[in-house]
Write a protein that binds this DNA or RNA. Sequence first.
DNA 1: AGTCTTTGTTACGGTTACGTAATGACTTGG
DNA 2: CCAAGTCATTACGTAACCGTAACAAAGACT
Lengths: 112, 112
Amino acid sequence: MQLSPAQAMELWHRVTVEALNQELPDLSARQIALLLHIYLAPPPHTVRGLSLDLNMSKPAVTRALDRLSALGYLKRQTDMADRRSILVKRTVAGAVFLRDFADLIKGQARRV
Amino acid sequence: MQLSPAQAMELWHRVTVEALNQELPDLSARQIALLLHIYLAPPPHTVRGLSLDLNMSKPAVTRALDRLSALGYLKRQTDMADRRSILVKRTVAGAVFLRDFADLIKGQARRV
DNA sequence: AGTCTTTGTTACGGTTACGTAATGACTTGG
DNA sequence: CCAAGTCATTACGTAACCGTAACAAAGACT
């Protein structure tokens, strides 16, 4: 996939502005990264693993999970093999949200 | 520019995660949108205009400008034709930051 | 058993952001 | 020249977020 710097900026511009105008639940950069990571990177996903992968502190991961699970975009499940760990699981609502977001990007990409 | 939903998500995922790992100054979605808008949409840019274009309250625009100008990414200039208004201007530092960001996107796009 | 380690969460203090409402500076129009 | 309107900012209360440090729960190891 080829993309000039100018195209890259125009795409990002269009998407961020459009996201603001649609008044999506406004997630921080970390929350978006976390959500995308859970849906796109291979499981399992634990707090510790996410903390390392995304370069954020464990409490920050916990709080992001609180927020995203309150929105219904994912859920926690304690790992039965090691009950200290929790496994972060996808949900239908999260998949729908990301699908819509992907469509927004796709739509704006077509205009670039 | 064509982009499947899956490609769109993968690109967004790669870029957001990479941005976290590089520990760029973490800007909110609004701040990024504002910065991109100022550099990509045709001037002039006033607080009121930005507030309308980006669907955010005027105080939110003022605060975002505070933050972004503290980082040196843009500057205010009072409009001499109507001294109530301010014109938001680009800076070299802002252009450099966005150029780097565009390169980051471009680099990740190549891997998608 | 008991200690040490690991995992996720909570507590705390501080920072940053928001929106509504009030304010100050300036322009406009009667 | 003064009242009304417009522009940006500040004030204020609230909510969200951060990182460090303390914590409870579970596992590992002797």
